[in-house]
Design a binder for these strands. Structure first.
Lengths: 250, 250
DNA sequence: CGGAATTTGTTCGTATGTATT
DNA sequence: AAATACATACGAACAAATTCC
């Protein structure tokens, strides 16, 4: 039965009582030691119980912990796998924070916006290098789709997200891309709490996308920075407005 | 017994089987609806079971999920409380990612470093405004402590962390401060995997702290940006070196 | 200081829903 | 369509930690 390659033998048979790392920590160690990566299967719950010398419930609670950190993914009725190691926990945490109207959703939104801007500025140089003297039909097409959908009175959240995702694709910094994506997600989730933007603001924002792309293709860092500022400007105004309104109520 | 103010009555009595939001989601909703904030007590597990109409195991798994996101904090034998809503999950996730030597710890480290730099640059303007024409004895004292400990051949991780924490205190953007703190933590946790820095590099880094502070007090944004670059430069070289070494092995 | 009361931590056994083959 | 493997859920009992008297 248990072959020489059975990875479960790497785990301590008997759980030392009271001392030692938590079950979740031991499972993380198992993933590390086995050199597993996203998508690789983990032992079943029963096997983990056996290997770690703890009960089913403890294993399940540990798996819940790791699942919420996207360190493992559970497919009901099938098995448990190494997760995507994404920034999903950051996103859900910030969204929850924003949903607590305690000191206003707007404060969270304003802070997220500032971080988005800082990150956009921080990668400007590298992005300009990557895009100089290129043409990018897909990105232009996305901008055109935004215009069309806006003319038709529809939202273009999907296109906006795809634009920003594609724009950063040349960066080899995975973390930056994930962070920008995470804050975009928090942002678009929280922003509906704001006042309805004017159609002029919306058009302003759409054209800013075009300007960002044009500046990048021209290799013009200055123009890119200006376009980024233009892109966030209407939103920034809305937030400051909302903060003032909330301040006057108090 | 159950008074008019019993907040548990806000929760649905009977859990509809199979459908509806998860238990964790319902607890989050409870926190929202009651307007609770960090440190406020939550109902006991038994009360949550009763209120949500689910078993204790389910409530416990939900609490584990929320605990790992720092949405609740559990004190053994005492009670459950609303958590600090910190970026702890981001930190532990990134540290775990870095600990998977899969494509090298250095890649994660390099990416974290780039983000730290981008954030530092992104808040430069605001920081200069806050520090112009001030004197900051505490921060200077921290730099001096770093020098002393370094002369004594000791580490000064604590002082370094405190310096960066205090430096950003004027920012009213909580999220930025937390992000910088989070990446600092990931950074200092992962950095021991690098080659031992030369004592010249260490002194270089310590003096960079001094230069950053001096530039801020002088209101000189340019000098501040240069000092930030100087601060990270030795580390950046170490990482590039490690990446080259790892690349040659493959 | 000691012990009772409260609350979370862990375990076991059992039954049920779900996905894959 | 049936069988199998697996995750989900429940409830009861006991252990450990903390507080309060």
């Amino acid at each position: 039965m248990a072959t020489v390659h059975d990875p479960l033998h790497m785990l301590p048979r008997q759980r030392r009582r009271q001392t030692g790392p938590s079950t979740a920590e031991e499972i993380k160690g198992f993933i590390r030691d086995q050199g597993l990566g996203p998508g690789d299967p983990l032992p079943t719950e029963a096997e983990l119980c056996e290997a770690l010398g703890v009960s089913r419930s403890s294993v399940r609670e540990a798996i819940r912990t790791l699942e919420s950190l996207d360190i493992v993914t559970v497919r009901h009725g099938y098995g448990t796998y190494v997760g995507g190691l994404s920034l999903a926990p950051l996103v859900s945490g910030l969204i929850f924070r924003g949903s607590l109207n305690r000191d206003g959703t707007f404060r969270t939104l304003r802070e997220v916006l500032q971080v988005r801007i800082a990150l956009d500025l921080g990668v400007a140089e590298e992005l300009v290098e990557a895009y100089r003297n290129t043409t990018n039909d897909e990105l232009r097409a996305l901008v055109e789709q935004m215009r069309e959908r806006n003319r038709a009175g529809e939202f273009f959240t999907e296109q906006d997200g795809e634009f920003h995702r594609q724009l950063l694709r040349p960066l080899d910094n995975t973390l930056v891309r994930q962070l920008v994506g995470a804050f975009w997600e928090v942002h678009t989730t929280c922003v509906p709490m704001l006042r309805i933007p004017t159609s002029s603001d919306i058009e302003h924002t759409i054209e800013a996308h075009d300007h960002m792309l044009t500046a990048l293709e021209a290799g013009d860092t200055e123009a890119y920075l200006a376009a980024v500022a233009q892109h966030y400007e209407p939103l920034q105004r809305s937030i400051e407005q909302a903060l003032r309104d909330a301040g006057q109520q108090a």
